[in-house]
């Protein structure tokens, strides 16, 4: 009986969004009378930071500071349609819709500014600080605050835009069954090192090294946060969590947090995160969906590491001490 060490590797491809009956998200953008921009969405921020990302995308497209943008995700009854925040699709789908809406609003904004400055709209640019100026002659400028006031009270224009992003439904080919369920894939690879006690079946994860390829990281700190938390959750799925430990029987299933135990701050493995940015062809500013896939590769990596350590294949999750001991017993019986 001994503590045995093992190392496992796993790699995944993860689609951004889904495609059953087509996958649309719509967005509306309009300016307030004082030149702030409202983005109206039905997409919901679950805490993953969607409001921040949408504000960045809208601000970058219109050419204003991010704090001039307000994201309203208040009401799925009254807002423009969204399929929802799931399948890691929020940034990709809603972000593309916001870009389209913001482009249209920017065009109206430049037209109103052109009338005020008596120049062509195509000769104007934004300075990113809240002003519009003539290209090559920045002394000839007008604040977006004044442009919005003019649009509302003088010119009778609505500085607004409509955005729509749709991944059309993909039908399988009749002969081969081949289809295109997704247009955009994120990738990840994990190397996990574990120690397995072959007397108790307990697994200790020593290190987790992850590489994530997620397109352009629109907010690198938030991406890092998602990936660090996701890596931990992947370990938790691999080793600890289940509502039905003897599925399909409900026996011994946890019914509350007294029984459904999750790892705490004392159960952390040394974790490393490396982000590779390969901009996607159809994502907003090259983004893909890093949301859910960050908790995936750790699971097969840990299973492979357990095999490397003690030579048993556990193909049911979570990889509990009981499952390891039963497999070792079977292995010993030969």
């Amino acid at each position: 009986m001994a503590i045995r060490r093992g190392r496992g590797v796993a790699a995944i491809n993860y689609p951004t969004g889904m495609n059953l009956g087509g996958d649309p998200t719509q967005a509306l953008v309009h300016s307030t009378p004082t030149g702030n921009f409202m983005v109206t969405l039905s997409s919901v921020d679950l805490g993953q930071g969607m409001k921040q990302i949408m504000a960045q995308i809208c601000a970058e497209t219109i050419g204003v500071p991010t704090d001039r943008v307000v994201i309203d995700t208040a009401d799925t009854d009254t807002g423009p349609h969204c399929m929802g925040t799931f399948a890691s699709r929020g940034t990709h789908r809603a972000g593309n819709a916001v870009i389209q809406a913001a482009k249209e609003a920017r065009q109206v904004m430049l037209e109103v500014a052109a009338e005020e400055l008596e120049v062509n709209a195509s000769d104007l640019e934004t300075d990113g600080q809240g002003n519009i100026q003539v290209k090559g002659a920045p002394q000839k400028s007008i604040s977006i605050f004044d442009v919005a006031l003019s649009a509302h009270f003088k010119r009778g224009r609505s500085i607004s835009g409509r955005g729509m992003f749709l991944i059309p439904r993909s039908y399988p080919e009749k002969e081969t069954g081949a289809m295109k369920p997704s247009t955009c894939y994120a990738h990840a690879c994990t190397v996990a090192e574990v120690e397995v006690d072959d007397e108790t079946g307990e697994v200790t994860v020593l290190t987790v090294k992850n590489v994530f390829e997620i397109g352009r990281a629109l907010n690198p700190k938030m991406v890092e946060q998602q990936l660090v938390g996701g890596s931990w959750m992947g370990i938790s799925h691999a080793l600890y969590e289940t509502t039905e430990p003897y599925y399909p029987s409900r026996d011994h299933g946890g019914t509350d947090f007294n029984q459904y135990l999750m790892p705490g701050p004392g159960d952390l493995a040394e974790t490393e995160i490396i982000v590779l940015e390969r901009p996607s062809a159809d994502g907003p500013f090259g983004a893909k969906g890093p949301g859910e896939m960050c908790a995936n590769p750790q699971i097969p990596a840990v299973a492979n590491a357990v095999f490397d350590a003690v030579g048993v294949r556990i193909d049911t999750l979570p990889i509990t001490p009981e499952r390891i001991l039963r497999a070792l017993k079977t292995q010993a019986a030969g």
Partner: peptide, 19 residues
């Protein structure tokens, strides 16, 4: 720090940023 936070569950961060 780990000991002090052990009575608190977090589902998002993986605890390391909190520590």
């Amino acid at each position: 720090v780990v000991e002090a936070l052990s009575g608190n569950i977090c589902r998002c961060t993986g605890y390391e940023p909190i520590i």
